[in-house]
Design a protein around this nucleic acid. Structure first.
Length: 423
RNA sequence: GGAGGCGUCGCCUAGUCCGGUCUAUGGCGCCCGCCUGCUAAGCGGGUUUGGGGCUACAACCCCAUCGAGGGUUCAAAUCCCUCCGCCUCCGCCA
């Protein structure tokens, strides 16, 4: 959630931020009055409670009639304290609930507007031109014996797949390349749990508007994560970190699960949009002041990774309305998908500043006090979409696929994936 | 899955049986100061976190915080219940 102090001291800034995202600003006034109500209820409770404590001390010292009289008074007071405490808890909860409706304040640099109002920052590489009719990744995957969506659907339903043979090898190769890249940049490798408690899910902002997209385990208080951003953001929850330990850079591997509710009919062919995939995700804890430079750093690592895969892509600066609840700014790298004739998101990096750490209570001790830290996340490699881009971009006329040089060491030195006879 | 034990303000720890004197003890570490040729030792002080009031976002005063949440009571670290976590043993199992 946002800093309550900003809301109190500069509500107009929050109103402007809502407008930039195309959201109503009435929540600002609701939050302000909830704050007032909360503070009043706190004062009411605290003064009663102080009185109760004073009387309590007298009770323990008093004797006989005096004690009986005190007990009479204090019995009545106890009831008042109880009601006041309940009122305070209520007011506090109402305030938090309202505050949580307000998304992170978008960066000044982020373009205003919705999904289509992004700014293209740059184009890298040139989209491939073929002198033959290119096959889409599904067909290539079939020829190579790499992707099996029919059996995926049979076993698990639509939007599921098996990666087989070189498909499976490609996943391991990409994961290994991603991990090595992460290590080179000083990230600690992590394998994160993909089932989490509500606290982690809610703390990262995924139980808000995005709740429809989240799988819940029946009969348990657990959710399947849609990204390892969730366990990694919760990793240091309720902790006060040593400021000297920052930045903390993690590269977490985990499966990701998404219901894809509301995207019926979209990307139904292939493995562009699936209910489950594996991903290596960068996650960083740092100071708010350093977070902006760190965001650029994450972007540059993502770009370098796509460069290694010899893909053509563009970088966009996502508009405020498309940032999601937690982010203050977001850059997407979109790779050119030849058979779709357009750019598709492969990686995405967000600066969430102190939005998530306020909810999850992650702070650091600085020389001048304890403050919430910033969190950032960035995709290093989301497997299926990366495989799609590689297969389609590097395909040859006979259905073979050239392996980008950087990936060859992880594929036993193979430079071309060749069609196989499949049964 | 069954049985038992444990969880105290960075770490260790006293307190819990028998509720009020707990404004939570002591040690270690850390910070400030004194002392000292330097260092060490010694001496003195400080050292959870969040919130409210008042304000200069200081000082100060107050409230909460003994794993979390409820309950009993005038009063809960202490009694009761639920949950979470850790440990030990048994069973089962990759």
């Amino acid at each position: 959630m946002i800093d309550p102090r900003i809301l109190r001291d500069d509500p107009d800034r929050v109103r402007a931020a809502q407008a930039k995202r195309g959201l109503p600003a009435d929540v600002v006034d609701r939050a302000l009055s909830a704050d007032t109500a909360r503070r009043e209820s706190i004062s009411a409770f605290e003064s009663l409670r102080a009185e109760q404590k004073q009387l309590g001390k007298q009770v323990s010292r008093a004797q006989g009639d005096e004690k009986a009289a005190l007990l009479d008074r204090t019995r009545a007071l106890a009831a008042d304290v109880k009601t006041a405490e309940a009122r305070q808890a209520e007011a506090e909860a109402a305030w938090v609930e309202t505050l949580k409706e307000i998304p992170n304040l978008a960066a000044d640099e982020a373009p205003a507007g919705g999904e289509d109002d992004y700014t293209v920052l740059e184009h890298i590489g040139t989209p491939v031109e073929f002198d033959f009719e290119p096959r889409d990744h599904l067909e290539l995957g079939r020829l190579l014996g790499a992707i099996d969506v029919e059996r995926g659907a049979k076993v698990s339903g639509s939007r599921f797949y098996f990666l087989t043979g070189v498909g499976a090898q490609l996943e391991f190769a990409l994961v290994n390349l991603a991990n090595e890249t992460a290590r080179d940049h000083g990230f600690t490798q992590v394998i994160a749990p993909s089932l989490v408690r509500p606290r982690a899910m809610d703390g990262t902002g995924f139980l808000g508007q995005a709740a429809d997209d989240v799988y819940r385990i029946e009969g348990e208080d657990l959710y399947l994560v849609g990204t390892s951003e969730v366990p990694m953001a919760a990793y240091h929850s309720d902790e006060i970190l040593d400021a000297g330990s920052l930045p903390l850079r993690y590269a977490a591997f985990s499966p990701c699960f998404r219901k894809e509710a509301g995207s019926h009919g979209k990307d139904t062919r292939g493995i562009i949009r699936v209910h489950w995939f594996d991903k290596v995700e960068m996650f960083v804890y740092t100071t708010i002041e350093d977070s902006f430079a760190e965001h650029q750093r994450l972007l540059s690592i993502e770009k370098a990774f796509l460069d290694k895969l010899e893909l053509a892509y563009r970088v966009i600066d996502t508009a405020a309305g498309d940032l999601g609840l937690s982010a203050q700014r977001k850059f997407d790298c979109e790779a050119w998908i030849p058979t779709q004739g357009r750019y598709r998101e492969l990686t995405s990096t967000s600066n969430c500043t102190d939005f998530q750490t306020r909810r999850l209570d992650t702070r650091a001790r600085f020389p001048d006090g304890t403050r919430h830290v910033a969190t950032l996340n960035g995709t290093l490699c989301a497997i299926p979409r990366t495989i799609v881009a590689i297969l389609e971009t590097h395909q040859l006329e006979d259905g073979s696929v050239r392996v980008p040089e950087a990936l060859r060491p992880y594929l036993g030195g193979v430079d071309v994936l060749k069609p196989v006879d499949v049964g």
